[in-house]
Design a protein around this nucleic acid. Structure first.
Lengths: 207, 207
DNA sequence: TAGATTGTTAATCGATTAACAATC
DNA sequence: TAGATTGTTAATCGATTAACAATC
């Protein structure tokens, strides 16, 4: 039961998955959903789901399942997305542009607030609603805005240097699209989105 | 030791990470690398790395470490990327375009061979080197080319339907960028790249 | 040879599952 | 009430780590 012990990271990592599924269920007009139903939708065992959720509180009702709206609200609160986080984007090539224009951040807790590049050809151009700024201004601008989350969409060769800069500017969480492992201080988190890694994980199982 | 028992998926999932680090090390001009050195570069324990690699064979030399070129070759073989896999891309919006033009697939085992969309405005237009085709032709084209890997870059609302179509066409591995869980048969693998999920995993730890 | 590092074993640690009393 | 489903416990299962003999 409930939220005072340390929650294992595997459990935290499933929370956004539950949240996404709950939001879909709500869109379908459901108001309540059982761990069994969630299990079928996600391929995660019902016992696992109940155990995970029980670490944060008693949200379920026996005989009926979980009230969707209340659980969504609770998960958003536990994940600290009961607010909107400003994000700084670095690297505005094809992928950076796609991210700057991506509509999926807004209603899930995030907003790209600034975009930087080092290429003079790109600086001053438009990316989504933003004007691309010179990466040399990054540290000052990010510090002033107290931005805590960075997205790296540069080539691999630049990514570690950009990470250092973000860390220096006070960023504590980095989403890295560049195909390279980043070395950062212990109090900074990194998540990786190199598309080739999951592809290679799957080809292992292909004939 | 060596490769006849079933390898746990966690181990398989680390192989591409090792491979990427080894390729970087080779680019730096190294010819041999110890588990200790790899550990520092990746934040994975040296014991873990040795144990993982030992499941595939005895690639290391006591006192010296692992010969990089040979290990790269071996990992590529075990991951079945000692060849180039054709991939079918579905959904050619901003993200799909970025993927079609991404240079990082070619030398890591993949090639986007076809791109489909259902929007008449997009069909016939250029995406990277490809001409966007009508999604109604997908099943036939994919079957004929015997393509086994699909990438979904459509909106969430279309993703499950596209997945069904890919499965019908014989695809066995799907990389899904749409923010939705896909339900597919047991012999089909799915990997997810919704950028919001990792962001929400990190905000849990932000104040 | 001396020093370094592997592959492997056994011990530890952590995560998942099964089962069921509690209860809506 | 009867039926369904939770939260939790204990048992199982699996993954990681520590340690070291073997050996390059």
């Amino acid at each position: 039961m409930s939220s005072r012990e340390k929650i294992p990271h595997v459990v935290v990592s499933r929370l956004p998955i539950y949240l996404r599924a709950l939001e879909h269920a709500r869109q379908e007009g459901l108001t309540c959903i059982s761990s069994q139903e969630l299990s079928e939708r996600l391929g995660i065992s019902a016992a696992q789901i109940r155990k995970d959720l029980s670490m944060f509180g008693e949200y379920g009702k026996q005989g009926r399942g979980y009230p969707i709206a209340a659980l969504i609200e609770a998960l958003r609160r536990h994940l600290h997305i009961d607010r909107v986080w400003d994000v700084v984007l670095v690297g505005v090539g094809d992928l950076g542009h796609a991210l700057a224009r991506y509509k999926g951040f807004a209603n899930r807790g995030f907003r790209i607030a600034m975009a930087f590049d080092k290429d003079p050809e790109r600086i001053g151009t438009q990316a989504g609603d933003l004007v691309v700024e010179d990466v040399r201004l990054l540290a000052r601008r990010v510090q002033e805005a107290a931005i805590k989350i960075g997205m790296i969409a540069t080539p691999a060769a630049a990514a570690q240097e950009v990470a250092n800069l973000l860390v220096f500017a006070g960023v504590k969480a980095i989403l890295n699209y560049a195909p390279i492992h980043l070395t950062v201080p212990d109090d900074v988190r990194v998540e990786y989105l190199d598309p080739v890694i999951p592809l290679q994980r799957m080809t292992y199982y292909l004939a």
